[in-house]
Simulated assay, not measured.
Amino acid sequence: MDLDLIALNVEAEDPKSVIRELGTRMLAKNYVKDTYIDAVLERESKLPTGLDLGEFCVAIPHTNTEHVNISNFAIGILKNPVEFHSMSEPTKTLKIGLVFLLAVKDPASQVGLLGNLMKIFQNVDLMKNIRHATTKQEVDDLLDFIQI
């Protein structure tokens, strides 16, 4: 994982600011096109990506492959939770502490990436360790099994 795509203690007011923060990191490294951030924001407004995992709530904003140069993902560990709308109940909001911003170039690889993310989301100890990580390297070590 690219350490520049890991953001610790992100201070954000709303989903848009989180997506912009993480998307700007991807754009700076040329993983995504300049249309990517706006496309993610547009998609999130129509198809929200908040997931209630019980002990944790996460969001996995993303957009179509045409806005991506190279597949990758950014992770934001939020200083304070931000309200995202729920994927399963769009009128409901969830307090999100972790955001995985996805950029997938090959649609076929999206299934594998989502499968790996679900393994993370189902592992409460791993989620706690990510949430409480104090360095980017620590997050990278915890997620080193993810293939993009």
Rank of each mutant, 00 (worst) to 15 (best):
M1Y: 01
M1S: 08
D2L: 02
L3V: 05
L3H: 11
L3S: 10
D4I: 00
D4P: 06
D4Q: 10
L5D: 03
L5A: 00
I6D: 00
N9T: 01
V10G: 09
V10C: 07
V10A: 01
E11C: 07
A12D: 12
V18L: 01
V18P: 02
R20D: 12
E21M: 05
E21R: 03
L22Q: 07
G23I: 01
G23H: 01
M26T: 00
L27D: 04
A28T: 07
A28Q: 07
K29T: 02
Y31Q: 06
Y31W: 03
Y31N: 08
V32Y: 06
I37V: 09
A39H: 04
A39R: 04
A39G: 11
V40T: 01
V40M: 09
E42N: 14
L47G: 01
T49G: 05
T49Q: 08
T49L: 11
L51K: 09
L53F: 05
G54E: 06
G54S: 11
F56Y: 15
F56E: 10
F56M: 04
F56S: 01
V58P: 00
A59Q: 10
A59N: 03
A59S: 14
T65G: 08
T65D: 15
T65Q: 13
T65I: 11
E66R: 10
H67P: 10
H67Q: 07
N69Q: 05
I70Q: 14
I70N: 13
S71D: 05
A74Y: 00
A74S: 04
A74L: 00
L78Q: 03
K79E: 08
N80Y: 15
V82Y: 02
E83F: 12
F84G: 09
S86Y: 04
S88N: 15
T91Q: 14
L94E: 10
K95A: 13
K95N: 15
I96V: 15
L98V: 13
F100H: 04
L101Q: 06
L101R: 05
L102G: 11
A103F: 07
A103G: 06
V104C: 12
K105A: 11
D106I: 08
P107N: 12
Q110S: 15
Q110K: 09
Q110L: 14
Q110I: 10
V111K: 13
L114D: 08
N116Y: 14
N116M: 15
L117P: 08
L117F: 12
K119N: 15
I120S: 10
F121P: 00
Q122A: 13
N123D: 15
N123K: 12
N123Q: 13
N123Y: 11
D125W: 01
D125E: 15
L126I: 06
I130N: 02
H132F: 14
A133Y: 01
T135Q: 04
E138G: 01
V139D: 01
D140R: 12
D141G: 12
L142C: 07
L142F: 04
D144Y: 09
F145H: 03
I146L: 05
I146C: 13
I146E: 08
